[in-house]
Write a protein that binds this DNA or RNA. Sequence first.
RNA 1: GCUCCCUUCGUCUAGAGGCCUAGGACGGAGCCCUCUCAAGGCUUAAACGCGGGUUCGAAUCCCGCAGGGAGCGCCA
Length: 467
Amino acid sequence: MTVRTRFAPSPTGYLHIGGARTALFCWLYSRHHGGDFILRIEDTDRERSTEAAVQAILDGMAWLELAPDEGPFYQTQRFDRYREVAGKLLAEGHAFHCYCSKQELEAMRAEQMVRKEKPRYDGRCRRRKEPVPGVAPVIRFKNPEMGQTVVEDAVKGRVVFDNHELDDLIIVRSDGTPTYNFCVVVDDMDMRITHVIRGDDHLNNAPRQMNILKALGVTPPRYAHLPMILGPDGTKLSKRHGAVSVMQYREDGFLPEAVINYLVRLGWSHGDQEIFSREEMVKLFDIEDVNKSASAINPQKLLWINQHYIKNGDVPALAAELKWHLDRLGVDTAGGPSLEGLVKAQQERAKTLKEMAEGSRFFFEEVKEYEPQAAAKNLTADALPGLEALRAKFAALPDWSAAALHDVLNTTAESLGTKLGKLAQPVRVAVSGGGVSPPIDATLELLGRERSLARLDQAIGFIRKAG
RNA sequence: GCUCCCUUCGUCUAGAGGCCUAGGACGGAGCCCUCUCAAGGCUUAAACGCGGGUUCGAAUCCCGCAGGGAGCGCCA
């Protein structure tokens, strides 16, 4: 039997980081076993589902390269099928019409709460023979009253539920639309899902779904309930934690492979290994190895992994992503240094591509003002002789290369009797406007002779004016 | 309230009775390197929630407790 997993988000918002990990684990598990990964959009809540959210989920998955083998399937397009199955359940005595009003149900629950019982439907319409005139009924599944339902969960282990804890849940609303738990059951059956991998907030739904499946004469799939992902402070992830949408991570300068690598290590590990290629993940991943407990997101570690992938990444690909970020910053890259050159100069010192893009601005834009602190420290009268000497030598340099520039810097420092640092830092401030840049020789090379000389002149003028 | 789940350094985790004076990683601290920022190298602090058992021996097995979480909708 081939393994078939599914990722089944409801399109009520963007793809968030927890959903992304669920999708990843589903994808990995199916890949590991040479199976199929199915995408199903659970859009039965027409109030909250939006077209834009569907697109956001698709975009997020595409960015993370978690392509489904089948789908997306939409539950709203399968209503006829759900009604058909509900009819079958009804005909076979596994379901019944319930005419209770919402007020009646509320009153029942209130009473149960007073008695310190778990609020649940008490089965009062089970044996009703006659319809109630003028009332559109819902259809409820007739849940077994005796015995137990055992979930042999791949992550949580054996979980036992008493059937009397489970009530007769509504499978079709009074308006004829099917409910979530029922759609899931029919879909998982029809799509021949072998492994249901989802968040552990669904663990309590598993026995209900299994019972419906059994009534339908189908063997339930294997379940694997993943622990939740928490915010950095250990509380439930929410908007106030900042980036929750995976696309926000792109905007913040993260690489998809870094996000994936970070996510795979949340609740799963392989000895002491931290860095995994896609191929390694697929080869090593097993759902049985997933942890039971929730894990908090650690932004620092994500940053570290991202830096790893930038440092070791493919230069042309990084350059393309850098371009994307520069465009977002509104930087015109025409006529500037090569983006690949910028990547090479900065890939060891940028934690994110956004940071790299921001650090690249001065290569394309004029230095309009200096960082006050950097200028106060470095653009001083003391620095003037060095800047002037370099300006002259640079102008005369036949070969504008990092090596040649490095040479000039060294010999000038020597002849002036100063350390390289005393010479390089004022140059850095002059050409970049601030105190941080790649090595000064590489910076100058990338910036080009014309711009470099103009900025040295500008800085020299600045110092004279101040003096 | 009821049902279910979870509990190793701040965080992610290794650990499936002796290999554990509890290992790795991020972050922290210190040192080295250094033209800035980084990167890199080395060193270092830091954890088995608590209480009972079982056992010659428990982070690992059992039972309680405490704390955290999820679910209990004509939401998904």
